[in-house]
Write a protein that binds this DNA or RNA. Sequence first.
DNA 1: AGTAGGATAATCT
DNA 2: GATTATCCTACTG
Length: 213
Amino acid sequence: MAAVGGPDRGAGLSADLAALLAGPVVPAARGLLGCLLHAGGVTVRLTEVEAYAGVGADPASHAHRGQTPRNEVMFGPPGHLYVYFTYGMHWCANVVCGPAGEAAAVLLRAGEVVAGETLARQRRPGARAARELARGPARLTTVLGIDGGANGAYLLDPAGPIHLRPPTTATGRIRSGPRVGVANGHDTQWRFWLDGEPTVTPYRRHVPRRRAG
DNA sequence: AGTAGGATAATCT
DNA sequence: GATTATCCTACTG
């Protein structure tokens, strides 16, 4: 799919962000690129995201088979954080999109640490280059100190402990491709990233894990 | 550079 | 009981 969209000049207002998140998930995902997510004393500029649709529409979505205790937040109003635990050790964070009742969300895959780098490095002792700090969905939550306790947090209150702000600088060109690591729906090119950003993760296809023994 | 395997537990069937 | 929207280490070249 060809890259679409030019530079987004001028920082939008928080009201614009709320309207964006209340709309369809794909434009919302694109609009989240370049936004600043602040949590735990660290600020990250989002460089890579993935869109997930609601019930029945997207086999890769956690909401595909309907509401469960885990994905409950996805069914609520937009602008909240959906956090889930996976692979026995990793937390991943999503921004809920669309009107309440429609369970769409945008997975935050990677970002650039723009503030609080000292704290970020303390949380990720193994990281060497700065670009590695929040390069990957579980790394991003680690750097921000996000875990299950942040599930459901409202992101559009600038005074909140975890909040999202519109871009302060022009965002670059947006590119798109297949989503990373999903078992189904890999034909849908719902991964979006900022062209040329070093913090974007390399694409990896889903590889089924064979059980031991 | 790229690939392979292990870690480790909530969630859903 | 199988699967998982991942990451790290170790190995090969």
